[in-house]
């Protein structure tokens, strides 16, 4: 074989061989387990820490609130909407990191009158004019039993 072809083939074979060996050691262990990705990444992603709790977690302790809520307007709503993520509180109830949102702005996110907000889905008032003598909605409305204070 002529020297130049010989050298070219030698170099290319060496290069490809080296590439394949390096590649073998660089490919992650679980790559291709389920598809063209690292199989272990599914576990990585599903083992992430949760920040929000679950409504069921709340009712495991707060069954009194659950009973009040049962026939209420806010029945079916998750506690976490107003009370915040709460996972830390579930893990350690001593931690008092639970929100008690009650201001006009917060309640208004759902209940302020807004043309885009469907009226048949949620009761709305104009938070700018609705009982302006009161600063806080919960002065009249108990969020767990809405019309209680009105009677």
């Amino acid at each position: 074989m002529p020297a130049q072809i010989n050298r070219i083939l030698l170099l290319f074979t060496a290069f490809i061989g080296l590439f394949l060996v390096v590649r073998h050691f660089l490919i992650p262990e679980t790559f291709g387990q389920y598809g063209h990705y690292r199989g272990a990444s599914l576990d990585d992603i599903s083992s992430r820490e949760m920040v929000f709790a679950d409504k069921e977690d709340c009712f495991a302790c707060h069954d009194d609130i659950m009973e009040i809520l049962e026939n209420e307007m806010h029945a079916g709503l998750s506690c976490l909407i107003c009370h915040g993520p709460g996972r830390e509180h579930v893990d350690d109830p001593q931690l008092g990191n639970i929100n008690k949102e009650s201001g006009r702005e917060f309640c208004g996110r759902c209940h302020d009158i807004h043309p885009s907000r469907p009226l048949d889905v949620v009761n709305q008032v104009d938070i700018k004019t609705h009982h302006t003598e009161k600063t806080n909605c919960i002065e009249c409305h108990n969020p767990h039993a809405l019309w209680e204070g009105m009677e």
């Binding site: 599903s46 992430r48 929000f52």
Partner: peptide
């Protein structure tokens, strides 16, 4: 990570 534990995604959990 919630789905795998049988919980709803955070956005759905808090949707009133």
């Amino acid at each position: 990570h919630r789905l795998k534990n049988g919980l709803a995604p955070a956005c759905m959990e808090v949707c009133p």
